[in-house]
């Protein structure tokens, strides 16, 4: 109990330092860099590998062009189009980013928080 409390306070402090909101999204997108991404990923218990980075850069490039953070299905299609059918599968992406891969990947890539619109 106290251990998890410590962990929560530690996380909250770290979030404040990184200027993250309560859900772990960057408050200012311009704060993003690779080390920030690594910390955000650590908050999600993800240790970033080469395979994560290619997705992160893909998402950032997509966002730069289209100003859109794609939801799951479009995210899968995007990865499929750009990185091939083997990676463009929700199973593969969930294996890397967990249950809601588009949301978590967007968080790590420093994209805006989805508006809960769907």
């Amino acid at each position: 109990m106290s251990e998890s409390l410590d962990r929560d306070t530690g996380l909250a402090k770290k979030n404040e330092l990184l200027r993250l909101d309560a859900e772990g999204f960057l408050k200012r997108l311009s704060d993003w860099d690779e080390s920030v991404a690594t910390s955000i990923a650590a908050n999600e218990d993800i240790c970033l590998q080469e395979t994560h980075w290619e997705i992160i850069y893909l998402l950032r490039a997509f966002y730069r062009t289209h100003s859109i953070a794609p939801p799951n299905r479009a995210f899968v299609s995007l990865v499929k189009r750009e990185l091939g059918a083997e990676k463009g599968q929700s199973r593969y992406l969930m294996g890397m980013f967990g249950g809601s891969p588009a949301k978590t990947a967007a968080k790590v890539a420093g994209l805006p928080k989805p508006e809960n619109c769907l």
């Binding site: 062009t65 289209h66 100003s67 859109i68 794609p70 299905r73 479009a74 299609s77 995007l78 189009r81």
Partner: peptide, 15 residues
């Protein structure tokens, strides 16, 4: 503003 045309380019990805 966000570029609307660039957003419409993504329609195909959404199916």
């Amino acid at each position: 503003n966000k570029p609307h045309g660039a957003a419409l380019e993504t329609l195909e990805l959404y199916g």
